[in-house]
Amino acid sequence: MPLGRTRRAARTVDYWPGFVDALSTMLLVIIFLLSVFMLAQFFLSRQVTGKDTALTKLNRQVDELTSLLALERAGKQTAQTSLASLTATLDAAQKDKVRLQGLIDSTNAQASGAGGAAAAASAALDQEKQVSARAASQIDILNQQIAALRRQLGAIEDALAASETKDKDSQARIADLGSRLNVALAQKVQELARYRSDFFGRLRQILGDRPGIRVVGDRFVFQSEVLFDSGQAAVNPAGHAELDQLASAVITLEREIPPEIGWVLRVDGHTDQKPIKSAQFPSNWELSSARAIAVVEYLAGKGVDPHRLVAAGFGEFQPLDGTTGDEAMRRNRRIELKLTER
């Protein structure tokens, strides 16, 4: 008997060191994965911050170019007004020149035909010559004014040409900056869309395929009876459990999305087309708005940042099903959640 016990004891294998080695290896793998994840988050945060800085710079440049373009257009308008005024003055001066030249020609003709007249005619001729001399002096003055006006017109035309060239350059720069700004905004929208997809995926895992909860497009939809009793706007006890899980998912999302991305969780209340009229809710507008506000207040009470929440009531005016059956009315009574830009 002692010999049999000794042999059984010798055949016993100590597995504990193997378990320790396996657990140590698993722990090292987990630590390595966590380190890689944290490094990826760090570099992603730096990249998003750089994009936001570039976006701010582009916005500032667009504002400056818009102001410069407004000033250039105002200067162009003033120059065009001055050009019109000078053109009118030039036309009037040219008409005076033609009139005075005609007067001189008439005087000279009269002087040529009065060579044999008497002393009275000679005096009249002298007077006409004085008038002609004054007219000629005025013509010289008008010629000088016309020359000065033409120089001013040339300078204004040059200034307008330069202004138009600068205006085209500014518009080209604004178009380029606008294109770059659109690219930056598109990148922001893509980032938000990625977080939206992750958020809805997480909600699907948390809430599962429960009756009355589904995804419609880019929205997560709760049927009203999941959260509220009929005709009421206070979240019922069954709805507390659903909203608790939703609040937990939103709080996790707040930690993951970089703070420079502007986003909100919009809560939309909808009713069916059956009218309601009570002292508390005179219409479906009030009921849908009150339900949306109740969800927002509940989420805020569970720790969700109120700055990330928006409540809206649509009454019966945004139905999913336009028919009048009971099933259509049930589908139209709903609370929709949408992760969108602020």
Rank of each mutant, 00 (worst) to 15 (best):
A22K: 12
R99Q: 10
F32D: 06
V189S: 15
V20F: 09
A292Q: 03
A133V: 10
L192N: 03
R331E: 08
H307A: 15
Q205Y: 06
L33K: 07
A184L: 13
A74Q: 14
S170Q: 09
G303M: 06
D268Q: 11
A312C: 03
Q232R: 14
V183P: 02
K166V: 01
V189L: 13
T12Q: 14
A88T: 12
A155N: 13
A123H: 10
E341R: 09
S85D: 12
L55V: 01
Q318K: 13
W285T: 09
F32Q: 08
K302C: 11
A9V: 06
T252W: 02
E164F: 05
Q205G: 04
R266H: 09
R7E: 15
R219N: 03
A118S: 15
L287P: 01
V235D: 05
T78P: 00
N108I: 12
L185S: 07
A184D: 05
W285Y: 08
T53D: 10
D229I: 02
D14S: 14
V221E: 07
I104W: 07
L309E: 03
G50F: 07
P259K: 11
L253A: 04
W285H: 15
R150C: 00
K302E: 13
K277P: 00
D326H: 11
R342D: 04
S137F: 08
E64P: 00
A186M: 07
V62A: 09
Y298F: 13
M26E: 11
K166Y: 01
Q144K: 13
R330L: 10
K277Y: 05
